[in-house]
């Protein structure tokens, strides 16, 4: 899958989960950059990304993702 396509689809997921149409994520976007991305929302986000790309993150991925770029790498490997 093309990186551009992953980012486009991720933007939609983020906008939906955080209820904010202005969100545009980049490789270096972290939880600190998105209003409301705390440990409670993290799992909601993870589940939404899993549903969107039809993949399953393992616990290592869930706890060690530091930025959106890490998420994109895993999606590319899994999808």
């Amino acid at each position: 899958m093309e990186t551009n396509e992953i980012f486009e689809r991720l933007n939609e997921v983020f906008r939906d989960v955080f209820d904010d149409d202005t969100i545009t994520v980049a490789e270096d976007t972290t939880a600190a950059d998105v209003d409301g991305w705390d440990s409670l929302m993290h799992i909601t986000l993870i589940s939404a990304v899993e549903d969107e790309f039809d993949i399953k993150f393992n616990m290592k991925d869930v706890v060690s993702m530091k930025q959106v770029g890490d998420m994109v790498d895993i999606i590319q490997q899994e999808a």
Binding site: D38, S39, H42, I43, M59, V62, V63
Partner: peptide
């Protein structure tokens, strides 16, 4: 919630990674 991200942070992060996330997943 912010207080618990700033107080006894290593205990909070332990519970998050080894109990909270595993229960939810």
């Amino acid at each position: 919630p912010e207080f618990w991200r700033r107080w006894h942070m290593t205990l909070g992060s332990w519970f998050k990674d080894y109990l909270f996330y595993p229960v939810l997943r």
